[in-house]
């Protein structure tokens, strides 16, 4: 029953944020500030994680394609894996883990200090004033990070494939156009956008319903990260399944 009520709250907040994104005056300053803040806590870890991630995928795919005798497709296969799966998920983990926990802790602390109540009685909606800018910032950072992680991952993958596995640079690049096409990049960015939204809403929801003093805020942060991870992996599955059905793979 509790889980059900919680789900209800997350969806209500999500709907509210979505509606307010279009119906209320955008809080430009708060959004920009939050964007920089979330970016500042996620960019460095993202870059650091994406190099080994790209490398691992390149190595794995490289050895697999060699076993299958499809070495000429190594480049395309690892790029697709990085851009479509690895990158949005790395982004999601960082935005939810580093960005979301910061959002949740910040809003939670404000809630137990009654700042939210104070804002409400001033006739200002905390959702509009605080939550919407944070969710938008999380979405923006997710898209930015996704681009970054994809680029670093692809470059890292190329480097490892060509240098370590003696792949041919020409074949690696040529196979791009054989298997990959533009929608692959789009779906990656759309995924990132959706993941940013989910991470932001889940974190904000836990934050604004924090209670029971400082310990309550700690618990809220913990729960928000776990819940966001669960949701993100599930949603990733759904989006991937839909995408693979709806958009025919190139060359098929």
């Amino acid at each position: 029953m509790n889980a059900l009520a919680e789900t209800g709250r997350v969806f209500t907040l999500a709907a509210q944020v979505a509606r307010m994104s279009f119906t209320t005056r955008p809080q430009v300053r708060e959004t920009v500030e939050q964007f920089w803040f979330i970016a500042s806590v996620t960019i460095l870890p993202a870059a650091l994680v994406s190099i080994p991630f790209g490398a691992v995928i390149a190595l794995q795919v490289g050895s697999l394609t060699r076993q299958l005798g499809a070495e000429s497709f190594t480049g395309a296969a690892s790029v697709l894996a990085i851009v479509q799966q690895a990158s949005p998920l790395v982004t999601a983990l960082l935005v939810a883990g580093a960005g979301g926990s910061a959002i949740c802790a910040d809003l939670g602390a404000r809630t137990i200090r009654e700042e939210m109540d104070a804002m409400e009685v001033m006739g200002i909606s905390p959702v509009q004033r605080l939550v919407v800018p944070r969710v938008h910032a999380a979405m923006g950072v997710a898209v930015l990070l996704n681009g970054l992680v994809s680029t670093v991952g692809v470059v890292g993958g190329y480097f490892f494939n060509v240098i370590m596995q003696n792949g041919t640079p020409g074949a690696y690049l040529a196979s791009f156009s054989a298997l990959a096409h533009l929608p692959d990049l789009w779906v990656s960015e759309i995924k990132a956008l959706i993941f940013g939204f989910i991470a932001g809403v889940v974190a904000a929801n836990r934050g604004i319903s924090a209670k029971g003093g400082p310990k309550g805020v700690g618990d809220a942060v913990n729960q928000s990260v776990v819940l966001a991870f669960l949701l993100l992996f599930f949603v990733n599955l759904v989006i991937t399944a839909i995408y693979l059905r709806v958009v025919p793979p190139k060359g098929a």
């Binding site: 602390a109 404000r110 200090r113 009654e114 700042e115 109540d117 104070a118 009685v121």
Partner: peptide, 13 residues
Amino acid sequence: LMGVMFQDGALFG
């Protein structure tokens, strides 16, 4: 129309 003074001030930290 209202002005509320909270028990602990509820200032924005």
